[in-house]
Design a protein around this nucleic acid. Sequence first.
DNA 1: GGCAGATAGTAAGGTACCTGTCTATATATC
DNA 2: GATATATAGACAGGTACCTTACTATCTGCC
Lengths: 160, 160
Amino acid sequence: MKETIPDNPPLGLLLRLVHQHWTQAVDNALDAAGFGDIRPPHANVFTFTPPEGIQVSELTKLAHVRKQTMTQAVEELEKLGYVERRPDPNDRRGRLVFLTERGRAVRPIASATGRKVDERWAELTSPEEMEMLRQALKLLFEKLRDDQPAGAVSTSRSDS
Amino acid sequence: MKETIPDNPPLGLLLRLVHQHWTQAVDNALDAAGFGDIRPPHANVFTFTPPEGIQVSELTKLAHVRKQTMTQAVEELEKLGYVERRPDPNDRRGRLVFLTERGRAVRPIASATGRKVDERWAELTSPEEMEMLRQALKLLFEKLRDDQPAGAVSTSRSDS
DNA sequence: GGCAGATAGTAAGGTACCTGTCTATATATC
DNA sequence: GATATATAGACAGGTACCTTACTATCTGCC
């Protein structure tokens, strides 16, 4: 028996379930591409690290996660040999993240996983449907961002 | 400067950000109602526990979380005095969760927080927009549920 | 030149999910 | 009635986010 959801489910529930599917799909895509050691949070690093290097702080802004989260992803990728960090010549507080040769080889695959999932989902529904969904979410996010007292994002999850 | 998102952001990013807003809003609503000790995952328990009691396993199906997650929520609410557990007279493996008197008093507020957030979001955009979003997510979820080899939900998160 | 406030990164700690494994009980089948 | 399988719950452990607090350095202003 399939798991059912109520006729008028709370949005939080739907957002959580669909998001879980997304991350699972990204993870599967990475595994299928032969990169079992790259986990979803790492993908952002590949996606956003330019040839000239980038600070972790910049990466956090692009990926919309906190410093701690991004720092950990970078550290793990450093251990795995995909990136390296060097002092930022222009800012002695900072360090720049670079892709290693190995990292550059992986980059196209890692940064494409998201697009792959997008495409798969568009097949399941329709490109128009997905575009509508994306636009609706984007609009809502922008309204929320302008509405709330900004900042203050908790860690809690629920749906009721 | 407002946090910006790319023109064509990965869906995973949008899903995560909007979901974060949702849970934050639920948390705020509970605090505002004077129930700072009730955290978002608890709301499901209030929403789904009927007068005749219910097993944790049933709650997990309704809320779509794993046993461990729901068990923890129930244990916390038990410590706080909102619910109690008694042996299930019809199944010696199980225990039934009941709302205490205190729990029954809170129930309407706790289970309404989700609806409150829905309404607020409908004000920010429009009721039609929110309904469209809900339907799009629901449709997508159903397609995904029927598509995938079912089960296998990982814990990873990412957006690229 | 000196100082206030912003920013890069680190450290320590918490939450809401997830997984797999195990025991006891229930249920369905032969 | 015995046996295989499914289910309820407990236990141990992991992940991806989050928070606040701290140091070092940079930047803008007097």
